[in-house]
């Protein structure tokens, strides 16, 4: 009986591992912006690809990664990529999010995931976690944790994806971009 208890999680693990090879789509979620407005991932994806980054004010590696996110936001916002930094700060440090973002001069959109429910939909609760989601909902790149230099890989992955997007739709750059959700400028 005891052995079977051990086997159960392993079976499920293998199942999940196999299944995840077949489908790597981002699950839909709804989160709130700093102004309490709800945003739904599926609605955001209708307007273009999205780069989501889960972070927290108390997480040092997360804060070290944010300048790279800002750089990506400034480079690709006009080409239709939305960069969304989702704070998993809980109620204890929730008040620090807005002054921290403004104080650091970041201009990408910031949202709140106080209960980590959006984060868990990508598997796990580790932060930082970054995922590049194509317009069809497919996760084309993801990164867990952060050490110096990881931002180069992220930038390269975004550049590659965006160039593929541009070549697939040559007129994409000329299309006007809907600015919602608002960047925190």
């Amino acid at each position: 009986m005891r052995q079977f208890r051990l086997v159960l999680p392993i079976l499920l693990l293998v199942f999940c591992s196999t299944y995840s090879m077949a489908a790597d789509k981002a699950a839909d979620f709804t989160i709130k912006g700093l102004d309490n407005t709800p945003y739904k991932l599926s609605e955001l994806l209708k307007k273009g690809p999205v780069l989501v980054d889960f972070w927290a004010t108390w997480c040092k590696p997360c804060c070290e990664e944010l300048p790279a996110l800002e750089k990506i936001h400034r480079t690709y916002a006009e080409k239709g990529l939305r960069v969304i930094a989702i704070s998993v700060d809980d109620t204890k440090s929730r008040s620090k999010v807005k002054p921290f973002i403004k104080g650091s001069g970041w201009t990408f959109a910031v949202m709140l995931d106080e209960n980590m429910e959006a984060r868990k939909k990508f598997g796990g609760t580790v932060v930082p976690f970054t995922a590049l989601i194509a317009q069809n909902g497919e996760i084309v790149y993801c990164q867990t944790g952060y050490v110096r230099g990881d931002e180069k890989e992220l930038e390269a992955a975004v550049a590659k994806f965006m160039s593929m997007q541009t070549s697939a739709a040559p007129d994409a750059e000329s299309k006007p971009v809907d600015e919602s959700p608002p960047a925190d400028e």
């Binding site: 999680p9 999940c16 981002a26 868990k120 939909k121 598997g123």
Partner: peptide, 14 residues
């Protein structure tokens, strides 16, 4: 889950 491919499955094991 397997009867419907509309499901997206994610998991975390620690």
């Amino acid at each position: 889950l397997t009867s419907s491919f509309a499901f997206t499955i994610s998991a975390n094991n620690e």
